[in-house]
Nucleic acid binder design. Structure first.
Lengths: 274, 274
DNA sequence: CAATAAATAGAATAAAAATTCCATACTTAT
DNA sequence: ATAAGTATGGAATTTTTATTCTATTTATTG
C-alpha cells in the first residue's frame, strides 16, 4: 500500500479515487466504479447494501475502503455524513459550544445569524410547494381588500408586507394594534386575511383570523410547521421553519416568502388590468 | 395506544408531526420540536446522536418514533434514507426547479428572493468589520436609552429591533411616527440613536439623527455603502449591501445584522450586571 | 508449467446501534 | 393527602452492522 493519509474532504476523496482507479484488480475496480457513480449513497447505506449493489463481497468493499486510505468503511462514511450535516448543523449544540468557549463577540453572533439565515432560506426553497404558494397568490390577487395581522416578532413581516402593498397600490390594511382599537368592523365578507404568527402563537392574530373565517373570509397563514392553531381554521398554510439562534431568529426565510408573495400578487393584478 | 399507520412520505411525516404535537409531554415535545427543525439529520444520524442533541434519553426518542406511527427509529429513518437520493441533486437544482415552473410564477419569484437573500448574507459576513461592529455594540450597551428610527422599508428592521430590546428589558423607544408627533423632546444628551435608512433616504430619519447628534447623542447607522447622508454626521456606520429583486429587497442581511447587534448588546448588559 | 504472490469469498467475530424493560418520579383526579 | 395513571431515565438485551480471518481461487513470473 502506497498512500497512508485519508481524504478529509469531498474534493480530496474524488481526486484520490481518480488517481487510484488505474490498474485495479477486478472486484476492487467494481467498487471504485460503483462509488464513482453513487458517491451520494455512501452517507445513508451499509457496507452490505453497497457491496451487494456493486456486485462484490462485503470484505472486498472493506479492502477498497482501506485502499482509499481509510481505516475502514465507517471512517469513510464519516466524511460524507459530516459533509451532509454541515448543511444542517445543530444550532443548539453549536451555541452551546460557542458559549463554552466564551466567544460571545458580536461578530461571532453575526456569523451565527448569517448561517441561520442561509439555512432558513435553503429550507424554504425545498419546503414550500409551488402549488400551495400559487393558490395563496391566486386568492390574494383576487381579494378586494387584504388584511394583514402579525404581532410581536411577526410584526416586522407584517409591516414589510404592508409597505410593499402600499407601493404597488394594492388595497391592504395593517392591523397593528395601535390604540388597542378593535379592528374587526373593517373586515368584510370576501376580504382576505394574511395571518402571520409563530409559536408561542399570539392570541390577537388567532382571534382575528378565526373571526374573519367566521364571516366568510379566506385566510392565508404564514406560520411554522408545528401545531399552528391556524391549521385548524382551514387556512391556506405556508409553512416556514426558521432556524433559531438562542431565543431569536433572523426571519430571513419568512420575510423572503412574504415579499415574494407580495410581488407575485402585484404582478398578477397588473396582468388582470390589461 | 391507538394503532396508526406510519407516514410513508415526507409530506405525511410533516403532517403527522403537526397534528401530533399538541398536548405532548415535555420530553416528547422536545423530540418533536427538535425533529421539526432538524428533519434532515434523521437520515445520517443515530438514535444516540439525535437524542443527545434534542436533550432527551434514547428511550424517550424511541417512544417518540412509535408515537409517530413507526415501529421504531430504524423504520422512521428508512423513509428519510430513501428520499435522500432524490434530494442530493441539491440546493442549486432545487432552485433551478423552482425557477423552471415559469418566469413570473410565485415560486420563481421566491427562488429569486431566496438567492438574493443568500447573496446579501454572504456579502454581509465579509463586509462588516468586527471592530466597527464591536464599537457599535459597546456604544449601545452603555446607553441609558436607545432610540430607534427607521421608516418605510427600514421600518420592519426598526420594529424587530424594538421587539428584541423589549424582550431583553433594554430601555428603547421606537420612533414610529404614529400620530405625526414630534418625538424630539424624548431624546436627551447621552442617549444613543440607531438610525436605519437606505437610498432614497427618508427625510425623517436623517433629521432625527442630525438633531440628536446636535444635542450630543452618539448615532449608530445601519445604511447602505453609497454616500449615505448619515456618514456626514459622524455616525458609527454599519454598511449593508442588500441585493434587490426588481424594486424590492429581501432585507435578510439587514435584519440579521440588526438582531445580532441586539443580542450582543443584551449579552453585554447582562455581563455588566454581574 | 510449477512456484509464488495477489485477490477473493464466505464464514466467524467484534463492535455498535436499536430496542425493550423496569424501577422511579411526576401528574392528575378524587 | 393519596391512589391511579403517565412519563421518564438508565441499564439490560437483542439485533444489526462492520470488520477480520482463513481457505481457496486466480493471476504472474521465471
Amino acid at each position: 500500500m502506497i498512500e497512508q493519509t485519508a481524504p478529509a474532504t469531498l474534493e480530496e476523496f474524488n481526486q484520490r479515487l481518480a488517481e487510484m482507479s488505474d490498474g485495479l484488480p477486478k472486484r476492487l475496480r467494481q467498487c471504485a466504479e460503483f462509488i464513482a457513480q453513487n458517491t451520494d449513497r455512501i452517507a445513508v447505506s451499509t457496507v452490505a447494501e453497497l457491496s451487494r449493489s456493486a456486485g462484490v463481497q462485503p470484505s472486498a468493499f472493506m479492502r477498497f475502503c482501506q485502499l482509499m486510505g481509510f481505516s475502514g468503511f465507517s471512517e469513510m462514511q464519516k466524511i460524507f455524513r459530516e459533509t451532509y450535516a454541515q448543511k444542517w448543523p445543530d444550532y443548539a449544540t453549536r451555541l452551546e459550544n460557542l458559549r463554552a468557549t466564551g466567544d460571545d463577540s458580536p461578530s461571532a453572533l453575526l456569523a451565527e445569524f448569517v448561517e441561520a439565515g442561509r439555512l432558513s432560506l435553503e429550507n424554504l426553497a425545498s419546503s414550500i410547494s409551488p402549488e400551495v404558494l400559487e393558490d395563496a397568490v391566486a386568492i390574494l390577487a383576487a381579494a378586494p381588500m387584504i388584511h394583514i395581522a402579525g404581532f410581536r416578532r411577526a410584526f416586522p413581516v407584517a409591516s414589510y408586507l404592508s409597505y410593499a402593498f402600499e407601493k404597488m397600490d394594492i388595497p391592504a390594511v395593517l392591523h397593528d394594534g395601535v390604540g388597542k382599537l378593535n379592528p374587526r368592523h373593517a373586515i368584510r365578507k370576501g376580504d382576505v386575511v394574511i395571518a402571520i404568527t409563530f409559536a408561542p402563537y399570539s392570541q390577537e392574530t388567532i382571534e382575528l383570523a378565526t373571526y374573519a373565517r367566521g364571516v366568510g373570509c379566506e385566510i392565508v397563514a404564514i406560520t411554522d410547521t408545528m401545531s399552528s392553531p391556524l391549521r385548524k381554521i382551514d387556512a391556506q398554510v405556508l409553512a416556514v421553519s426558521e432556524v433559531d439562534v438562542g431565543a431569536f431568529r433572523a426571519l430571513s426565510g419568512t420575510i423572503s416568502l412574504a415579499i415574494s408573495m407580495a410581488v407575485a400578487i402585484g404582478a398578477r393584478r397588473d396582468a388582470a388590468l390589461q
